[in-house]
Simulated assay, not measured.
Amino acid sequence: MDKITKGRFIGKTAIITGAGQGIGFEIAHQLAAEGATVLLNDIDEALTAHAATRINAVGRCLPCPGDSGDLAFIEGIVDRAVTETGTLDIVIANAGITLFGDFLSYAPESFHKVMAVNLGGTFFLAQAAAKQLIRQGRGGSLLFTSSVTGHQAHKDLAAYGMSKAALEMLAKNLVVELSPYGINVNTVAPGATLTERTAADAAYAATWASITPMGRAARPDDIAAAALFLVGDSARHITGQTLIVDGGWTTVSPSPY
């Protein structure tokens, strides 16, 4: 495929974590296809390299393997963005982990791991990025990836759902902290989505199609379209908001079990 030469994000640099596959990959792919230089992170080094190679067929993507919950790595990826491109404009904290478990027997180590990645990684990436955006003095966009489980109870996901609801509150709070600098902060909350991970469940697509008002589970490009809107110039006056992309599931909330 030919390199993209024009688009909404020409001249901009974006960081996205947890983007080796699935929703994160598609967001990174679409950003690069619209002209952004993308620093793509995943904890899996081989997956990061493969994803970056695919995206480099349509734009510019720099692979950045590492632990997005590690403070030194977080600071390093922000520095690399500026060193290699001269700017930082968009940061999408997409990395997260899901550890299912019954509330009554949920292990402390599982709880702390979910919080460290889903909350700690997002919080400190936003902090490091915001400092850079403030230094640049041109504003910018932060986007967090939440989930419908932050809105509706879901079996065996008490810790995960709690972490996702907290991200939405973080976005609201940062309106107070970052609006004076022209930085908007929003959250996208995907519903059931067909990715490499969910493909392991043979019944997933049919189950969610049957209980989703729009008649199907989401595809990664559905979520990516919402994400690109929220970090684009058309959404500059939108901040502190969560955009749910779930085909209407949270409106009616039938259980998949």
Rank of each mutant, 00 (worst) to 15 (best):
D42A: 04
V175N: 09
M214C: 03
H154G: 07
G18R: 01
A36E: 01
T239L: 08
I211N: 10
V231Y: 07
P213D: 03
Q241M: 04
D42W: 02
T195E: 05
E168T: 11
I16R: 01
A235S: 12
H112V: 07
I90F: 09
T242N: 11
E168Q: 15
Y257E: 15
G69N: 07
S146A: 15
S68R: 05
L104M: 15
H237C: 04
L99R: 15
H237N: 13
S163K: 00
P220L: 03
G240E: 11
T195D: 04
E75R: 12
G120P: 06
S68N: 11
P108D: 14
I43G: 05
D233M: 06
I43M: 12
S210A: 10
R60C: 06
G11C: 10
V148L: 08
E109N: 12
A51W: 04
E109W: 09
A95H: 06
V114Y: 13
T207R: 02
A200H: 03
R197T: 01
D246W: 00
P108F: 02
L99Q: 15
V117A: 14
D233N: 14
P190I: 02
A49N: 14
A217C: 11
S163V: 03
L178I: 05
D70R: 00
F124E: 09
L230K: 03
C61A: 12
I92R: 07
H112M: 06
K113M: 09
G96Y: 06
K172I: 13
A158K: 03
P108W: 06
L40H: 06
A129W: 00
L230P: 01
L230M: 14
M169K: 13
I43A: 10
F111Y: 15
E34G: 03
S147A: 12
I244N: 00
E177A: 13
E196P: 10
T37E: 12
A202I: 11
V78D: 11
G140W: 01
F229E: 07
R8C: 00
F111S: 07
A200V: 06
T212E: 03
T5Y: 11
V58H: 07
E177C: 04
N173W: 05
T13F: 06
H50P: 05
P108E: 13
A57R: 15
A171W: 06
T239V: 08
D44N: 15
A130T: 12
A126S: 10
P254A: 09
R219A: 14
L125K: 12
A128I: 04
A171P: 05
L104Q: 13
I77A: 05
V185H: 02
S147N: 13
T5S: 11
R60H: 13
P180V: 01
A46V: 12
N118Q: 08
T37A: 15
T198N: 14
V78K: 08
I55N: 11
T198I: 01
S179H: 05
R138L: 05
S163R: 02
Q21V: 03
T83S: 15
R8K: 14
G69S: 14
E75P: 01
V252A: 13
P213Q: 09
D67I: 09
R54F: 03
G182D: 09
W208T: 06
N94A: 02
T250H: 04
P180A: 03
R236M: 06
V58C: 10
A51T: 00
F103E: 08
A209D: 12
L125H: 08
A189G: 11
A218S: 15
V245Q: 06
I134F: 09
I223W: 01
W249E: 01
G86P: 05
A107R: 14
I92F: 08
A107D: 14
G247Y: 06
